[in-house]
Write a protein that binds this DNA or RNA. Structure first.
Length: 259
DNA sequence: ATGACTCGACTATCGAGA
């Protein structure tokens, strides 16, 4: 099974990009973030034409998460939030979508940005990660041998080498954020791509020629439970997806799992 | 070239992104 994650920065603006990616890679499940639409606005018909179905969760033009999956798969136990997922301004935002495919529990996740170190959004981000780690820990404790993948835009660069200039950034590289990210390692989850692609970015800002200058950030990850980590046979960052007409500012990350 | 932001929204500036 091949799974992928991609912050598409609008499902509607990126429809043909998504279609071409699915046709080119033939992935079984694609977790998407920042779909920026409600389910009734998602271009479901276009994906059905190429043999994929869609589950999406979006409240408005912000955030939004989804799965595109091969039509023959049957997702189970769909959840549009995880237990104790924090709210922002009394709203549980569309930042998490869970579904089980062929016995593998997948979460499509769009971790809050944080905005600034002293912004309330940063506390929201840290709480979101803390409660996500709690849930991830519960999943493997309650189901020993459970295969779980936390897939998405974590909005954290864990290593200095994951950004083009660590001094340029305040958020995404701070100690509290990296500590929150390392909690997943402490409960046994692994970065599924680091061994295959030790160096490389997944995001380049649209501004200031960031992509031509290769000034990016590595902030999109697949964090896997031990039993799923045992199945990984290849991983890639699809850097070429940042090229061409109207790309997302993020590129897809693909994981190949043995059967 | 991979080239100087982009998206969707109260359609015209603006919040948000990172």
């Amino acid at each position: 099974m091949q799974i992928a994650t991609w912050n598409v920065n609008s499902a509607r603006a990126r429809t043909e990009r998504i279609v071409q990616f699915l046709q080119r890679t033939n992935v079984d499940v694609l977790a998407m973030q920042e779909i920026k639409c409600k389910p009734e606005q998602f271009p479901v018909g276009r994906l059905e034409e190429i043999g994929y179905k869609v589950i999406s969760h979006g409240l408005n033009q912000w955030n939004g998460v989804a799965f595109a999956y091969k039509a023959e798969l049957e997702p189970e136990d769909i959840e549009t939030e995880f237990p104790y997922q924090p709210q922002f301004k009394e709203v549980t935002e569309a930042r998490a979508l869970g579904a089980t495919f062929d016995g593998v529990r997948l979460w499509s996740l769009y971790v809050p940005h944080g905005r600034a170190l002293d912004d309330p959004h940063m506390q929201y981000k840290l709480e979101f990660l803390d409660r996500l780690a709690s849930h991830a820990n519960d999943l493997v404790n309650e189901h020993p041998g459970g295969q779980v993948a936390l897939m998405g835009d974590f909005n954290i660069a864990p290593l200095d080498s994951d950004v083009f200039d660590v001094a340029f950034f305040e958020t995404h590289v701070s100690a509290p954020e990296r500590e929150a990210f390392s909690a997943f390692d402490q409960i046994g989850y692994s970065d599924l791509h680091r061994d295959f692609v030790p160096v490389g970015y997944t995001y380049w800002d649209y501004q200031d020629l960031r992509f031509p200058r290769n000034e990016g950030m590595r902030i999109d990850f697949v964090l896997s439970s031990p039993e799923l980590t045992d199945r990984i046979s290849a991983g890639s960052i699809e850097r070429d997806e940042r090229k061409g007409e109207t790309p997302s500012d993020h590129v897809p990350v693909i994981s190949v799992l043995t059967d």
